[in-house]
């Protein structure tokens, strides 16, 4: 098991390397020049020499191969360089936003799991009854409604009925949990609802599948009470695909909440992502892509290890 874990972690290196190569060269192919954007963006008349000086300062005049080599050396030593736009260290820019993004993702996951597991299971147990239909309609609605729109509704409703707006500045949870939750709970809810819809549907179909298994019939025949049949035999076995969905969705939330962050005026990774792309801020984009790829890899390994914990048939060699 330990050996497997180590090997999986080592296998992540070529994956991340591939991502690095792809993002580095793709960025260079995409049109858009940070120096021009930065200096001439407002229509200012800046001489070509000044542009060239800035290029040299940012290292953009060197051949691609040596730029790539510099970046790789930086990555290995965990030095992500400085933002080409603001000049601040990339690591710092990301760090101040990562906490917020993580918190939204974790809250949304908690909400999704708390909704999806009971609802999905109940829908499966009461298949084709009104309970099932209600759950299914809720789930389909969750998939159909964009989470940012739901977020707007939340804000509008609170504003109209309670004349209340969530706080705008981010307060870390360890400073003032209430102020923090007041700001984070709405984005977490609006994202978590959609997220729970995916997980509910997965839970429902997975439980339905497992309930058809022969060992469920065995459990009933040997006289185990229905409640225990469901809790002990069905749900445990139905959990695997649900975990996969939850894990991948979690990884997506870290960098993927562009519009929702906009709606709630959250300064998160998603917003930084969009900013960096419009600015062609190479170092920032590269670091963000590597971060998201890294999170995906970590979540994937975690899911696989969790599989082995939950299913004794899976023993990795």
């Amino acid at each position: 098991m330990l050996q497997y874990t180590v090997r999986r972690i080592l296998l992540a290196i070529p994956t991340l390397l591939g991502v690095a190569v792809l993002i580095f060269f793709m960025l260079r192919v995409v049109p858009g020049d940070i120096v021009e954007l930065k200096l001439r963006g407002d229509g200012a008349a800046v001489s070509a020499e000044t542009l060239q000086v800035e290029r040299v300062r940012l290292g953009l005049d060197k051949p691609l191969s040596s730029q790539f080599a510099d970046w790789m050396i930086g990555l290995v030593t965990l030095d992500f360089g400085k933002s080409m736009w603001t000049g601040n260290p990339v690591a710092h820019e990301i760090a101040i936003r990562l906490e917020l993004s993580f918190e939204v993702a974790i809250l949304a996951t908690v909400i999704a799991v708390l909704l999806a597991l009971p609802l999905g299971t109940i829908a499966a147990l009461y298949k084709d009854t009104w309970i099932d239909y209600v759950v299914r309609v809720l789930a389909i609605a969750g998939l159909a409604v964009p989470s940012f729109w739901l977020g707007m509704l939340f804000i509008l409703a609170l504003l109209v009925y309670f004349a209340w707006l969530p706080p705008i500045t981010f307060t870390p949870i360890y400073q003032d949990p209430w102020a923090n939750l007041a700001q984070m709970i709405l984005p977490a809810l609006s994202v978590g609802y959609r997220y729970s819809a995916v997980a509910t549907r997965m839970t429902r179909s997975s439980v339905l599948e497992v309930l058809k298994e022969d060992y469920i019939r065995t459990a009933r025949a040997k006289g185990v009470f229905e409640r225990l049949v469901v809790a002990r035999h069905a749900i445990r076995n139905a959990l695997l695909p649900v975990i996969t969905v939850i894990g991948l969705e979690f990884a997506f939330l870290i960098g993927g909440l562009v519009v929702t962050e906009q709606v709630f005026n959250l300064n998160g990774i998603g917003k930084l992502f969009v900013q960096s792309v419009t600015r062609s801020d190479y170092t920032m984009i590269q670091a963000l892509v590597m971060l998201v790829a890294f999170i995906f890899v970590v979540v994937n390994v975690a899911i696989d290890l969790l599989y082995a914990r939950l299913d004794p048939r899976i023993r990795y060699q």
């Binding site: 060992y215 939950l310 299913d311």
Partner: peptide
């Protein structure tokens, strides 16, 4: 079926 009728977990 002795394969499927025992809970694998």
């Amino acid at each position: 079926d002795p394969y499927s009728s025992l809970n694998p977990r």
